[in-house]
Design a protein around this nucleic acid. Structure first.
Lengths: 242, 242
DNA sequence: GTCTATACACAGATAGAC
DNA sequence: GTCTATCTGTGTATAGAC
């Protein structure tokens, strides 16, 4: 599975505006026809991400959004009742996609070593395919009050737990070394996040998502794999990172 | 050098509002007496960081700041001509401190392995001592236009270069393995940043900055140290991370 | 469904008394 | 040096025509 194949695979389900998770938001929308809703919501969400990633969600005015989305101020407000709810809708729609795809790919793997590799790789691929949203979500949800922030934290811990569980399970079967798996999982998460938080840097250096994935997997396995499973380390292994 | 010792050491110079780097900002301040300026600037900066870390700098109104800093709106404006300049002043003052201390400690080391350890450790200690500002700087400077953003990027790359150079130098003397040092340095930076970006998480888990530093150094050395220098790996070394 | 015009609140910044 | 009172622009959100 490389990035190109991944991107083709998810392109169908990416515009799913009427999945279960999103459905409660449907009542916020005054417009009747589903096709119109899907088309315009996508314009609105895209515009929101584009502007917010330049100057922040707070600093984005509804007039900015109106210009970029090519809908009038009045029209915008028939898709959401307030700017705050717009953010909630965007978050719930994108989070739903992300969770579904991540789980789908990880559950497909059986070997524990492959599970770790796939988790790293798919997370990177996802954040590459939806870079604007991942960045947005990281930067904006911290400033939101109440239940929306709680969901952001939950989401952070959820991904982390995936890695922690893989490491723990791997330790039991002797594939991974014992250690502070929670802390290691946190740090893996941090490394994954850097890919979308510093996209400008890696783009400038022509680091592809494949290269980054390899380097990261190499680093994690060097640290986590127990001796008998660790074939590549200190031997000039084939993957070339070292 | 542990964190407590570090904190005592830097507490004197932390409130240095009249160093060279900051001096050009002195003319923005209408108030004459240096002692008054230092006292009130600290109140203003602290309040700015406190409010901004809750809801973002954009969302912080001057009335919020007035309340928190216990200075009237009018008084505030005798310390800076605009909200935008306030941010510049805060950034230049804190950046100046950070750079000075980081260099001071790293240059003190001679052995290359110690240099790496100290760079990691002092960066973590600094971001622990000035957590609010590190967080603020990360979250806010992305949304700023022009030269201020350029400075943020420069600062990011500067720290990264410190690590890249250490790894490169260590490779020459056979202490570190060859590899993509730039990429490894990026990732080290990401791991360092996680400490202040996810402070809430580590606090809740009672992970101390010492523990985090140890884990991180262990991880980096496992990956970078060449075989003959790597004594702790796969042998249940004394530091207990594995 | 989408538009234009507008209500109303609150932001940043200043004036001038003390 | 610090205060209160106020100016002026821009923000979110709505009303009502088409």
């Amino acid at each position: 599975m490389n990035y190109q194949a991944f991107k083709r695979r998810i392109s169908d389900c990416a515009n799913d505006y009427f999945s279960e998770d999103f459905f409660e938001n449907r009542r916020n929308i005054r417009v009747k026809k589903d096709a119109t809703v899907a088309k315009n919501l996508e314009k609105i969400f895209d515009a929101t991400l584009k502007i917010s990633n330049k100057k922040g969600f707070q600093a984005m005015s509804m007039r900015d959004l109106s210009r970029e989305s090519e809908l009038s101020l009045g029209a915008l407000y028939s898709y959401f009742p307030s700017k705050e709810v717009l953010l909630k809708m965007l978050q719930s729609q994108r989070r739903s996609i992300t969770k579904r795809i991540l789980e789908e790919y990880i559950n497909r793997e059986t070997g524990i070593k492959d599970k770790l590799r796939t988790a790293v790789r798919i997370h990177l691929y996802l954040s590459e395919a939806m870079q604007q949203w991942f960045y947005f979500s990281y930067m904006e949800t911290k400033n939101i009050s109440g239940p929306e922030q709680a969901k952001a934290i939950e989401s952070e811990l959820y991904t982390e737990m995936i890695f922690e569980n893989i490491l723990r399970e791997g330790e039991k079967s002797g594939v991974f070394l014992p250690g502070n798996h929670q802390l290691t999982a946190s740090i893996i998460k941090a490394m994954l996040q850097d890919w979308y938080l510093k996209r400008w840097k890696y783009a400038k250096r022509n680091i592809s998502v494949e290269q980054y994935a390899k380097h990261l997997i190499n680093m994690v396995e060097t640290f986590c794999l127990s001796a008998e499973y660790d074939k590549s380390k200190k031997s000039g292994g084939e993957n070339g990172s070292h």
